[in-house]
Design a protein around this nucleic acid. Sequence first.
DNA 1: TCCTTTTTGCGAATGATTTGCAAATATCGG
DNA 2: CCGATATTTGCAAATCATTCGCAAAAAGGA
Lengths: 146, 146
Amino acid sequence: MTTSLSPEDRLRAAGQRITSQRLLLLRLLDASDGHLDAESLFHAAQQEMPEINLSTIYRNLEVLTRAGLVAQRYFARDHSREYFELATTAEHYHFTCTQCGKIIEFETPLIAQVRSDLKRQHNVNIRHACICFEGLCPDCIPQSQP
Amino acid sequence: MTTSLSPEDRLRAAGQRITSQRLLLLRLLDASDGHLDAESLFHAAQQEMPEINLSTIYRNLEVLTRAGLVAQRYFARDHSREYFELATTAEHYHFTCTQCGKIIEFETPLIAQVRSDLKRQHNVNIRHACICFEGLCPDCIPQSQP
DNA sequence: TCCTTTTTGCGAATGATTTGCAAATATCGG
DNA sequence: CCGATATTTGCAAATCATTCGCAAAAAGGA
Ligand SMILES: [Mn+2]
Ligand SMILES: [Mn+2]
Ligand SMILES: [Zn+2]
Ligand SMILES: [Zn+2]
């Protein structure tokens, strides 16, 4: 069981340079529930660091993702925008409500099962998977007349 | 068991107007293995219809997708580009080789299982899912020394 | 502290997809 | 078959998230 490291130690452990922009990004992701896009992170970051640039956000999200500290996700049918969350949480998947935008996280061993079946049956080496669902959350499902 | 309808009948059955551009698009998708992007379909279409426009391709792919005749997919880690295939094939999922680009299709009942678990546990109404895997296909996995 | 490498801010570029518009086409009732 | 009406198309320009080139600033190591 790992005591969660400070942003600085996480960067160090990942062999990345420690910059105030990266620390800020990690702090913002720590503070949020995750599932933020570059633009939202940019706006949040500007509160503390008004001179920070959007391309710095993008570049660092890529660095952090490749370093394994952050996970990039797609939600909803429209994959036009990338979202990010800390990679520290356990493997889980997402359901997005197309009406209100709520994201429901869930776990299941079945995806791991799919992966191992796929690996065994087709002799492939799986490096990455994108699994997401969308539809209406309980609050947004129209009720039938009582 | 449905005898596969002609492109024209498929459009009619879906209540969409029959245009030569749409018929061509359906024919091209019929002829290919699917998994084509708008640009490839555009190039293929131009062979038979030199004046066809790329935005017509995009617009009709959306129409056909909404009509349920075509399915839109994302492949590879870079989801920056949409791919399409006929929606007539059985529910299946995709693995993309990041090295050679090959796409391996596979079936599994486990995803349906995930959906029903998700639906039951969170009372959501699932409308769409995006499931895709990527990595190295058998041909692209480096062999260890014999 | 000095030197070398990496990162940053800035502005411009990219590239897939979308959109406004007027001309062309499909559908349909007569 | 014909004309009126609703849709669709080709064209050109716009979007918009993400990427890039560059010179100045900051980080890390000796
Ligand atoms: Mn999550
Ligand atoms: Mn397929
Ligand atoms: Zn909702
Ligand atoms: Zn391959």
